[in-house]
Each structure stands twice: as structure tokens, then as C-alpha cells.
Design a protein around this nucleic acid. Sequence first.
DNA 1: CTGTACACGTGAAAC
DNA 2: TGTTTCACGTGTACA
Lengths: 175, 175
Amino acid sequence: MDNVDQEFNNYWETNSFLQNEDFEYDSWPLEEAISGSYDSSSPDGAASSPASKNIVSERNRRQKLNQRLFALRSVVPNITKMDKASIIKDAISYIQGLQYEESKLEAEIRELESTPKSSLSFSKDFDRDLLVPVTSKKMKQLDSGPSRSLIEVLDVNFSEGDIHGREDSGSECNM
Amino acid sequence: MDNVDQEFNNYWETNSFLQNEDFEYDSWPLEEAISGSYDSSSPDGAASSPASKNIVSERNRRQKLNQRLFALRSVVPNITKMDKASIIKDAISYIQGLQYEESKLEAEIRELESTPKSSLSFSKDFDRDLLVPVTSKKMKQLDSGPSRSLIEVLDVNFSEGDIHGREDSGSECNM
DNA sequence: CTGTACACGTGAAAC
DNA sequence: TGTTTCACGTGTACA
């Protein structure tokens, strides 16, 4: 019973964030009679319903997306909130921070390796660090310079992402 | 059969751009001729919307989340698909790759600085407020060799293509 | 015609 | 009190 899994893993917060949808969808039947649409092509008994097969697919999709989001939250070290959107926001900030830090570290390494040649040992281990600038991107858009402008525009928006007390954001992103 | 106040989508295409395969790119039509905004005056006469206030809130929330997702897609260099879930998946992989690479670079720096080091200032501040457009376009396709252990744990869950047939979906993604 | 993917509206629940 | 987030079912559209 209770096959309606109710999204096993939904408690986003340790405190208690789960909301129980105490509805009883016993199984995944009962969808006819909602409207008098006489679908002559009856699926012959308990077979795949043309419409009811979608809801299970949808549920699956939703579950998968939640899972992904949950995993994303796992890899980001500092999470402020659990809001489906804040998770992504933090992830973006974290990615940008990592990218920036990485560039800085690379610059540092590059500067370090240009030390007095005497200190440079013969065992050069830079082959591991493949610093190949992949300029040929197959990405269709947001290539070249203007790409970052887009990021900035978007980043400015949710830089002050304050869930509480939102002030009627006009969402006037002029893209 | 008659929709009371909804004639279905098409009135604000600025939001529905996410379902696109690897076909033509050209997102952002750069048009904002919205204007429409039908006044769904309820025949009841009551000007206040008792329950219709939620739908606009929901719409706003959904739009915000889509925006975040789009921004997330912007900061991740290698995006394979546009599927709401694949975006997050790629983002996770990218984050893990960055983390691994960062650790590697740090180790390398540590090794380099142990040598006759010059007087170099090591500034490792993680400046987040800067939001500097890093645009480090040298993605490395993350060799997916080491640092795989962490990925596996999370990746076991969202192996796409395996979603059919199972509805149980044991979730071992412990946080 | 089947499957996939998305936006939408809605009730419920936490804050 | 009200706001905000969520999962759900449903219809649609594209592959």
C-alpha cells in the first residue's frame, strides 16, 4: 500500500521541511470519468493507459531532477538555503569562485616555474597539467567575449538573491 | 472544453526557451513585445483574486528557477544537452573536475614552493564578492580518471537511460 | 504513434 | 494573519 512513494527523499532540511501530500492515489488508475471523452481505443484492461502513462513518466522525471539537484547540493561546500533556487545560486557562485581561484593558482604556478633556472629540477611534471586552451568550442552561442557579459547580467540579478522580503522583482532582464 | 481564462502558452515566450535540442541555437529572440496581458476578469465581480494570487507567485518562482538554471548552464563550459536535468548533471561533473584540478594545482604549488622559493606573495583569498568575470575558457574535459570515487557515489543514481521500469529507485545518495 | 520534456494550475504545508 | 515553496496531475509540443 501507499505505493505513492511521496518522493522518498524530500526533506531538504534536517529540521523538517517535508510536506506530506496526504492524498491517496491508491494506484495509478482512475483517470477516466474526469471528462466524458469517449476514448474508444480502450487499452483493454489494465494495460498502459495513454494518459496515465504520462504521469508516471512525469513523476520519474521530477524525481530525477530532484536527485540531480540534491547531488548538486552535495558537491557545493557551503550551502545557505535549501531552496531549489538557492541551491543553484550557490552552485553558480561556487563554480565562479573555483574558476577564478583556478586561474589564480595557474598564474601562480606559471610564475613559480619561471624562477631561477637552477632551482628547476629536471623532472618537469608539467606534462600532467594539460594547459591546452580549448579555443575551438562547439558551443553554439555565448562564445567569445560576449559570453561573460551574459553571465554578468545574470549574476547581477541573483547576487542579492533574497528569498524573504522580495520586492516585486520586475524581472526586467534586458537580454 | 472552454478554457475559462487560459488560451495556453504563447503569450510569454521569454520564458519557454529551454526545450531545444542541438538544433539551431539562436536563443534570446530579443523581443519584448508582450503587451498582451489579458484581463481575466472573473464574472463573479469580485475584483480581488482569492486564489489567483498564488498562480502568479508560482509563475514567478518558476521563472526565477529557470533563470538560475540558465545561468548555471552559462558558467559550465561543456554542456551536452539542454535537459533541465542534464544541465545539473554537467554542472556537477564540472564542479568535481574543478575541485580535483584545484587540489592538484595546490599540491603542485606546494611542491614548488618547497624548492628555493623566491619571495612570492601567496594570496589565496577566495574573493567571492568580486564576482570577477573569470572566463577561464580552458576546460579540460576532466580526465575522469582519479577523483572518480566521489563521482561514482553520486553518479550511480542519475545514470540516465535506466529510469524505465523501476519506480522504487533506491536512493543511496546520502548527504 | 510512442516517448520525452516542459509549463501550467492547484492544494497543501512550512514559515 | 499572509507568503513562499513544493509535488502533483494534465495538456501540449517536439522528437
